[in-house]
Each structure stands twice: as structure tokens, then as C-alpha cells.
Design a protein around this nucleic acid. Structure first.
Length: 902
RNA sequence: GGGCGAUUGGCGCAGUGGUAGCGCAGAUGCUUUACACGCAUAAGGUCGGGGGUUCAAAUCCCUCAUCGCCCACCA
């Protein structure tokens, strides 16, 4: 193990430079093997949602990976066996598109070079650019296992994918069927629904008249409304709404389809909205998904009128050979000439475009492979309803179950080259077909050459195996023992359906258990104005820019602070010309990083003569600090276990900044500067102990600054012997049980009294515009008990409050030339040496009385309410009564103060 | 069309039944020997509108409005 030698305080730089330190620490951690699986109790295996191999880090990844890293670091420190598995997704369409583009720039076409050469080009591309996002993840400080990077197209992974296909194929869970796909006539491939781009475009709604075969009730023809008149060539039916009484008389009749002389039936179907268009819908099963569904239900022929380039096929006379646009024009002209064109309305509708070449996509009927989900969805539903697998926040459970409920068979084939090729081989001569683990050239039946299916699998088909195909399955499933199910999946909500659900289904089928115990869904990060970040809008924030500007720790802490139960959050960064200008939120976290640095520097600068030893609550402020610390340890531990990352990040900051820096460190200065040797040593021990504990608590969120500071920090009582030669990331998490004895409610209350006195003095000083350095005498009139409490804290009240003299007593009277401040039942007199501004004091006290009287009136009203006294919880009533008594007393005191002013 | 979420001080957000908190910005005063990426003090909000439940609503229910997301659909 790498020796992490302790440096001396003098060597600690005055300023902290994350941009220098962070990459250094990554190197050191990795060299020491800190990122690899560690041995421990229990298990916290986490798989990273694999980023696209073509991708670069965006804010979603940054948040996702920060959460995972914080969680993994927390668990690692707790001594739990931890491994975070890294990998990338081959991302079929995305990668193929990029490679296509690159080849196109070189004047090469994919079709010319052929499948094998193209796949080689994809591999080249991956070797060249695939590491970018991995390096970016590294830059963030993610303690993921970089030494064992997985890839969804690696040979081992491919084997897993192939096995899944073959097993499902042989278990009749995979079948081939016809389906309407989004066909790009320019790329001549299908584009998945998820990859098609919808755009609203102005168009027309043409009313076409179709003559009835026999007039119905004197009506000679019906009128359909369509945005795509050219498809009428393939019409095989007319549909009306079942809820449309006016149309009922037409159901069962037929129309004579113009141009093609086809007699087609009129029927009713729920797909039809009676209120839209004319109420008559032309049905073209081969060229529209809904029409296809209606065609299936009503047994209509499917007539494909387009070839793969969306040109009208033979058999349609003058229309054959026309492109779809030419055909549209010609069909409309034909109807017009023959007096069959009705109204032409302007109509905006959404049109699918190929996200690669932007051509309008053509719904096209073709053969595809499907996964039958009926048998898979039932167990996948059960594990969630039973609570075995939990979603955080809980509300996503419903989203998941709804989706499961509506789940339809999954189309898994894609007409691409980059991906896992479907391992189905078939023989043209004897009709043999099978899914095989090994490629074959000849038919086992008749010995003639066979062909393999040309299509590849949907990318999600391979990524659904992520939790187990990354852990040795199927060859060495023993790797998984004790590490599957994984602990938690941290992901975005938009892939609950696409990915999370499918992982659950496949894991239950193949491994017989859930893929992860918990799913944590984080909020979508939106731009400052609430819109989605996107490349086209140029409003995206680049996490690399954030880290360049503020450091990884600041970005990480800032992101964690953003986590709430909401489904989306706005990120406050200003972007100008695609470049980050600022992010106040991250800036605040950077200030916090600096604060941690400086507070630590202060402690380190005051360690002359330090020897490790146990913390002791020598003074009231020590007791207070240790009690606060113990509560923080407890809270942070619970927050991590409960996936409450936002609460953790916010609370730890308040604790460190306010409790530790603003109060405790200030309170310690007196003893550090003026204390005797024994006192100094104890303060040092307490400070080192509190700082050490705090750094451990902060480490999961801000690994870099805490690690760096810790390297200078001498051993505290937490682990005197183990400290040297170790990294903070390997140090033990402070366990709540070990701190419980520090919790001291009395100490916290007593401290609060002293704090009130200090605040009163400061406030008075500010009100009279006195220099913060000016020392003032103060006296407090309070019960003997309270006076005793305050007396024990007199030293630091004087130091921190800059109080020259502190008098305490139950019978004290206000000195001449002093002002009174009433706070928390204490009557505090601050001696101003006669420079009291009577008018100002009167105004202040009158205002305070008015405020308190208003409050008292409200409390009295509540207490006078019979319903309240009869029904409210006893402790609430008691609280109100106490509140009333306090107000009575304080108003009386204020009134007296006012009278004293004359 | 279905579902979900948001609406709290100038901005970004906490706060799930007992009349409101944080950070940033802004104000004032401070080179207090860790920190001006700081310290201190003060100011700023009838918690989107309306209705209901309750002794009591920012908080629970209904409704409206606005914004956003997801899913489906758009002949």
C-alpha cells in the first residue's frame, strides 16, 4: 500500500487549487488500488448506467455519477464490500450515425464498403473516441473500477447477449412478426420509435370523396379527410367511430375506391374520433400503424404501394414510379379533375423525421423480431408490488407499474449494422431455421448454404443484461456470488421503461433474482429558464467547464444540494455563446470547499505540541460541539442509507460552516492563544477529532479537498494507529453508535443561552454603529440557575462577544447608560457608557412590544378556542400555554424597559 | 388524450397540520493574527387564485390558472 506520509502545517499552501490537486489525487488513489473491489462485510455492488460510447459527459451523467460515487465511497468507508462497475454502451444508432458521417466526409458510403469493413470502422471509432467519457468520469473523482471496463460489444458480453436471444427463442419468447416500422427511404433502414424526431409542421387536410357502391339513404358518396392522399392507393377499408350515430347506417356498406377500382368495406372501430375531420377514416394498413391495427382487427388486406425508396410500385398506372410527393400532387389533381375533391383545410400535424438525414419517415410494413412479454412481466410486476425491489422516491413505483401494465411485445430488431447481429440462421431450400450460439454456413438438414438474419438487436436488448453480463455470466456465474443483486441502480426517470424494467425482466428470467435492491431516480436537470438542456438550444452546461472553473468537489457538492423529491430541477448556470459564464450554486459550493480548506489550515496551524488523545468535553462549548457532531454523524449515516443525498449535502454544510467554523473554532481561539498547556492540548485534541470526523463525513461528497486536508491532519482519537499511510477514502466512516454518548441536550440548551448573550451584544454594537472591535461591558439578569450556566461560559462569551466585563445576577438592575435587550427570557444589559439613543431605544422596544402583542393575541385566541382545548394534542396545548407565559413575561419586561427609558 | 410534478422573499430552492427557513443577489459595518471564495448586523414573504376538511392549513382534499416532464395519439 502506498505510504501517505503526513506533512507539516507549514507545508500546507495558503490557497487551494482544485485544478491541480484533483488530478494528482486521482492518480494516487488509482495507483494504490483504492478503486478496486475491497473486501468487507455485506455487499455494495453498483453498476454504472453505461454511457454511450460516443458520448461526452453531460449534466445528467455528472449528477448520476456523483450520487453513485458518494454512495459507493460511503459504503466503502463503512467497511462494506464495494465495487462500482464501469462500462460503456455500443449505442447502435448513435455510433453508426457518427461513423457514417465520418465516412461520408471522406466520400465513402457504408453500402459500398460492406458490412465487415464498416464494423471495423466502428471499432476504430470506438478506440479513438470511446475513452473520452471514461476520462471525464475519472476527472470527477468517481471511484469506479477503471481497471475492468466493460463494453456491451465485447466478445464476452456478446456471448451473454447471444445466449439470451437463443434461450428466449427456444423458450418461444422471441418470435418474428410483421409490424409497421418507421422507415427512412433515404437511409433505407428502420428507425426506432425512440429515435424518430417528431416535428409539428403545417400541412393540409384533404377531403376526398369515395363513391358508395350503392347509395345509402340517398347519399351517393362519403368523404374522408386525410393528410396523406397518396396512400389512398393502398386503402382497404373505411372506418367510422362506434359512437357516431350518423354514421351507423354506413357500417357494413362498401365504397368504390377511385383510381384503383377497389371495393372496400366501411366498418366501425374505436380508433376513430367522430369529431375529427369528416368522421370517415381511410384505412391503409400497410402505411400507418393505427390503420395496421384496425386492419388486423377487421381482417383487411395489407397493400404496400411503396418500394424501399418510397416510390410507388408497379401496377398503379400513371402513378407507378412517382415519388410519394409527386404521387400526392397527382392524386389530389386526379380527384380534383374528377370532381371528387372536397374541402382542403390547413392542418398542422406532427411528422416524423429521420434523425440522421432528416427525411420524412415512412411507416412501412416489414418483418421484425419481437420479445413476447406476457410471461416476463408478471414476475417483474410482483417483485415491485411485494416491496422486494424499491423505488426512491417512492412515486416512481406507480410509473413503473403503469408501464408494466400497458407493456406490449417488444420489437428488438433494427436494420443496422453496428450491434449484436441476430443469431438466427435459415435455409432457403428446406426451410430450416434456428437460433444458434455458434455461426454456421450449412444447413444441418439438407447441407445447403444458410443465411443469417441481417438485422441487429435493439441496444436495450443488450443493456438489459448489464447487472449480470458484466459479472461473468454466463461463463463464470460464480463471480456474481455475493455481488448480485446489486445494491442500487441510480438513473434518470426517462429510462425506467426502456431500461430499468427490462433489466428486471431479464434478470428474473436468467438469474432468478432481481438485478438490484433499490432504484434511485434523480431529477432531470433543466436549464436556468426551466427548459430542457439540449444541443440545438445551446443551453447545455458542460460539466467539464464547471470543473475547470470551480473544481470537481464544488460541482459534486453543488449537484448533491440540488437533489430534492422533485422530478426536475433548474440549474442556475448562465451560458453565453455555448460557454459557461457562471453558476452561483456551484460558486457557493466552491466557497464551501475553500472554507473547509481554511478551517483545516487554522486547526493545523495551532497544533504545536499536539499528541493524539481522546476528545473530552472539558467546557460547555466542547460538550455542545461534540453533541452537535454526534447528531450530524447520525443524520449523515441515515441520510446515505435512505438515499437522502440532498439533505445530507445541505446539512453537512450548515454543520461545518455554522457550528464548527462560526462557533466552535471561534470559541477555541481563546484557549488556543491563552490557555495553559493542558488546556491547549485538550482543545487541540477536540479540534482534530471534530475536524477528522467532519472530513470523513464530507468525503463522499467532496473527496478531493477532504483527502488533501486529511493528508496533513495528524491522527485523532478515531484511529490513532491506522491513520498514517492511509488515504481518507479508506478510513472508517464514523459510526453513530460510537458517538451516541456525546449527545447532550442540556449542553446544547446551555450553550444556546450563552449564544444569545453574544448575539445581543453584537446586535447592540451594530445598532449603535460601534466598531466590531469595541469592547462592551454586559450584565445579565436571570435566575440563579441560568446565571450559573452563563458563568461557566463566561470566558468564551467575553472572548467571542468582545465583552469586557460580564456581570450576572438575579437581582441586577440596569446600569446607567446601558440598553436592555430581551432574548430567550434573558434580560441583557449592554453598557454603552451613556451614549444611549433614547428615541431609538424607545422605537425599537415599542416595535418589539407590538410584534409580541400581536403574537400573544393570536396565541390567546387559540387558547380561548374551546375546540382547541378539547381536541388538540396535550403537548401542543402545553406548548401554547408556555408560549403565552413567555410572551406575558417578555412583554412585561419590555414594558418595564420602556418605562425605565422615561 | 392519460399520468406525474411544480407554483414559498429579486433569483435558485428547503420546509407534510400548530401563522415560514437556506444559499445567492442587494443594504450597512468590518483588512478581528484560517478564510473578503471571509466575518458581523439588519432588511425583505398575507407560501399562484378560489373553495373545502380541521380547534388549527404553506402543509390534507377539490377546483381553476400558469409552467414543465413522461406516455399515447394526431386519419
Amino acid at each position: 500500500m502506498e505510504d501517505v506520509s503526513k506533512l507539516t502545517a507549514e507545508e500546507m499552501p495558503k490557497t487551494y487549487s482544485p485544478q491541480e490537486v484533483e488530478p494528482e489525487l486521482v492518480e494516487q488513489w488509482m495507483e494504490a488500488g483504492c478503486y478496486q473491489r475491497n473486501k468487507g462485510t455485506g455487499d455494495c455492488t453498483v453498476v454504472i448506467p453505461p454511457p454511450n460510447v460516443t458520448g461526452v459527459l453531460h449534466m445528467g451523467h455528472a449528477l448520476d455519477d456523483t450520487i453513485q460515487d458518494a454512495f459507493v465511497r460511503f459504503n466503502r468507508m463503512r467497511g462494506i464490500s464495494t465495487r462500482w462497475i464501469l462500462g460503456t454502451d455500443h449505442a447502435g444508432i448513435a455510433t453508426q450515425t457518427k461513423v457514417d458521417l465520418r465516412l461520408k466526409e471522406q466520400g465513402i458510403s457504408r453500402l459500398e464498403m460492406g458490412r465487415e469493413a464498416f464494423l471495423e470502422a466502428c471499432q476504430d471509432w470506438r478506440r479513438e473516441y470511446g475513452g473520452i467519457i471514461v476520462e471525464q468520469i475519472k476527472r470527477m473523482g468517481c471511484s469506479i473500477d477503471f481497471d475492468d471496463e466493460k463494453f456491451t460489444m465485447s466478445p464476452e458480453y456478446a456471448k451473454a447477449v447471444r445466449k439470451v436471444f437463443c434461450d428466449w427463442y427456444h423458450d418461444d419468447l422471441i418470435y418474428r412478426g410483421k409490424r409497421i416500422v418507421n422507415w427512412c427511404p433515404s437511409c433505407t433502414t428502420a428507425i426506432s420509435d425512440d429515435e424518430a424526431e417528431y416535428r409539428n409542421e403545417p400541412g393540409h387536410l384533404w377531403h376526398l370523396r369515395y363513391p358508395l357502391t350503392e347509395p345509402v339513404g340517398g347519399v351517393e358518396y362519403i368523404e374522408v379527410a386525410t393528410t396523406r392522399p397518396e396512400t389512398m392507393l393502398g386503402d382497404t377499408g373505411i372506418a367510422v367511430s362506434p359512437d357516431d350515430p350518423d354514421k351507423a347506417q354506413f357500417v357494413g356498406k362498401t365504397v368504390h375506391l377511385p383510381i384503383v377500382d377497389r371495393e372496400i368495406p366501411i366498418f366501425s372501430d374505436w380508433h376513430v374520433d367522430a369529431g375529427f375531420g369528416t368522421g370517415f377514416v381511410k384505412v391503409t394498413p400497410a402505411h400507418d400503424p393505427n390503420d395496421y391495427a384496425m386492419g388486423e382487427a377487421h381482417d383487411l388486406p395489407q397493400i404496400n404501394i411503396f418500394d424501399e425508396h418510397a416510390v410507388v410500385v408497379e401496377g398503379y398506372g400513371e402513378f407507378s414510379g412517382m415519388t410519394r410527393d409527386e404521387c400526392r400532387e397527382a392524386v389530389v389533381a386526379w380527384f380534383d379533375e374528377h370532381g371528387l375533391l372536397g374541402e382542403v383545410e390547413e392542418h398542422e400535424h406532427s411528422v416524423m423525421h429521420c434523425y440522421r438525414c432528416d427525411s420524412t419517415l415512412e411507416p412501412w410494413l416489414s418483418e421484425q423480431w419481437f420479445v413476447a412479454v406476457d410471461r416476463l412481466k408478471e414476475p417483474a410486476t410482483k417483485v415491485v408490488t411485494s416491496g422486494e425491489l424499491k423505488f426512491y422516491p417512492d412515486r416512481w413505483t406507480q410509473t413503473y407499474l403503469n408501464w408494466m401494465d400497458n407493456l406490449k411485445d417488444w420489437c428488438i430488431s433494427r436494420q443496422l449494422w453496428w450491434g449484436h447481429r441476430i443469431p438466427v440462421f435459415s435455409c432457403a431450400s428446406c426451410g430450416w431455421e434456428d437460433a444458434l450460439m455458434e455461426d454456421t454456413n450449412v444447413c444441418p438438414h439438407c447441407g445447403t448454404p444458410v443465411t443469417q438474419d441481417e438485422d441487429v438487436l435493439d441496444t436495450w436488448f443488450s443493456s438489459q443484461l448489464w447487472t449480470f453480463a458484466t459479472q461473468g455470466w454466463p461463463d463464470t456465474p460464480e463471480q456474481m456470488t455475493g455481488h448480485h443483486p446489486t445494491r442500487v441502480l441510480v438513473t434518470a426517470r426517462d429510462i425506467i421503461a426502456l431500461w430499468v424494467a427490462r433489466m428486471i425482466m431479464s434478470s428474473l428470467y436468467f438469474i432468478g433474482e432481481i438485478p438490484f435492491h433499490d432504484v434511485f431516480i434523480y431529477a432531470t436537470i433543466l436549464a436556468k429558464d426551466g427548459s430542457r438542456m439540449s444541443k440545438s438550444k445551446g443551453n447545455g452546461v458542460d460539466p467539464m467547464d464547471l470543473m475547470d472553473m470551480y473544481g470537481a468537489d464544488a460541482m459534486r457538492h453543488g449537484l448533491l444540494c440540488l437533489i430534492t423529491n422533485n422530478q426536475d430541477v433548474r440549474f442556475d448556470a448562465t451560458i453565453k455563446d455555448g460557454k459557461l459564464v457562471d453558476s452561483p450554486r456551484t460558486e457557493a459550493s466552491r466557497s464551501f470547499v475553500t472554507k473547509i480548506w481554511n478551517a483545516s489550515r487554522f486547526v493545523l496551524m495551532n497544533l504545536d505540541g499536539y499528541k493524539p488523545g481522546a476528545p473530552v468535553a472539558e467546557t460547555p462549548e466542547d460538550a455542545w460541539m461534540l453533541s452537535r457532531l454526534a447528531k450530524m454523524v447520525d443524520a449523515a449515516t441515515k441520510q446515505f442509507d435512505g438515499y437522502e443525498f440532498g439533505d445530507y449535502a445541505r446539512q453537512i454544510q450548515v454543520f461545518f460552516w455554522n457550528d464548527l467554523c462560526d462557533w466552535y473554532i471561534e470559541l477555541c481561539k481563546g484557549r488556543l492563544l491563552d490557555g495553559n498547556e493542558e488546556e491547549r492540548l485538550q482543545v487541540q485534541r477536540n479540534l482534530v477529532y471534530v475536524l477528522d470526523t467532519s472530513l470523513r463525513l464530507l468525503h463522499p461528497a467532496m473527496p478531493f479537498v477532504t483527502e488533501r486536508v486529511w493528508s496533513w491532519l495528524p491522527a485523532s482519537a478515531l484511529d490513532e494507529t491506522e491513520h498514517a499511510g492511509r488515504f481518507l477514502m479508506q478510513a472508517a466512516w464514523p459510526e453513530p453508535d460510537n458517538f451516541a454518548s456525546f449527545i447532550d441536550e442540556d449542553a446544547e440548551q446551555e450553550f444556546e443561552l450563552a449564544r444569545r448573550v453574544i448575539l445581543a451584544v453584537r446586535s447592540t454594537r451594530a445598532r449603535y454603529r460601534l466598531s466590531p472591535k469595541s469592547e462592551l461591558a454586559a450584565s445579565v439578569r436571570a435566575s440563579d440557575d441560568v446565571c450559573e450556566t452563563l458563568a461557566s461560559q463566561a470566558t468564551f462569551i467575553k472572548n467571542v462577544g468582545r465583552v469586557s466585563e460580564l456581570s450576572l445576577g438575579a437581582e441586577l438592575t440596569k446600569p446607567d447608560g446601558a440598553v436592555s435587550v430581551l432574548d430567550a427570557g434573558l434580560e441583557i444589559y449592554v453598557d454603552l457608557g451613556g451614549m444611549v439613543d433614547l428615541t431609538q431605544e424607545r422605537a425599537r422596544i415599542e416595535k418589539e412590544i407590538a410584534k409580541q402583542e400581536k403574537e400573544r393575541a393570536s396565541v390567546e385566541k387559540t387558547l380561548a378556542n374551546e375546540g382547541f382545548v378539547a381536541k388538540a394534542a396535550p403537548e401542543v396545548i402545553e406548548k401554547k400555554r408556555a408560549q403565552k407565559a413567555e410572551l406575558d413575561e417578555s412583554i412585561a419586561q419590555l414594558t418595564q424597559q420602556l418605562a425605565d427609558l422615561g
